[in-house]
Amino acid sequence: MSSLTMADAALKRKRVARKRLVNGAQNGVWFLVVCALAFAVMLPFIWMIVTSLKSPTEVFAYPPTWIPKEFQWSNYVEMWNKAPFGRYFMNSAIVAICVTIGQLTSCVLAAFAFARMEFKGKNVMFMIFLSTTMISSQVTLVPTYLVMRTLNWIDSYQALIVPFLANGFGVFMLRQSFRTIPKELEEAAKLDGCSRFRFLWQILIPLSKPILASQALFAFMGNWNSYQWPLIITNQDSMRTLQIGLRYFVSGEGSTQWGIYMAAALVVTLPVIIIYFLVQKTFVESMASTGLKDI
């Protein structure tokens, strides 16, 4: 073995070592960046929790305190007693769950038709569906209100649920996802005597779990957070939802009790956060696989 090859080998080892070092440093830097971003995202949440435990005078203390001097757990008690929050919780849950199930059902069926079937006027209909996503909800507020009025649905669960059972964006998203699944799969299934509905139920839906999970999350969150429609369409306390309850704490003219308000905000946000963690795995998968390749 000549000295040259030995030097070569040493050089190679060195290079590998350096590469590892650079990689390690790069990973370290990335880790720090990600940590910083995560902290930036967490900050409002942390601030909400901290504020919810402060007394009114400490909320505005300058410089701000990160750990409350005295933990005001009473903020939570006061918040819960201020309005019928139990009832609001139930209403919000009923509405959000019904809308989520309804939206998934209608979107899956419509998306299946648009992605997998041939019928007259299909493209025109799809365009009409798509165009609904471009109309802001404020524009349709009054017409929808009048429809609800004609149906005698004001102050009812139907009024809170039915207008949201279909969703143009959901149809679009699912259609794109369904189209990525090879046609051959359907043909093979058909050959084995599989009906269309069974193909949808047993093959397409299980394959589209991630996209369905994210659609479910969108539907749930969108409804859980909606304020204007529930406010307009309900008149009695017993039909109102959490987001309206939150506003009871806000006074436009300066007497908002921030500690109690933040306690309420935390309680209202909690279910959404929990659900997010529950479906997180499938949700992240869908982020990676949301391919909009063949529009």
Binding site: P56, T57, F60, A61, S251, E253, G254, S255, T256, Q257
Partner: peptide, 15 residues
């Protein structure tokens, strides 16, 4: 400069 309506809230929150 503010509104008289916010006075009680400000009083409560001020240290």
């Amino acid at each position: 400069m503010g509104s008289t309506s916010g006075v009680s809230g400000i009083q409560k929150d001020a240290a």
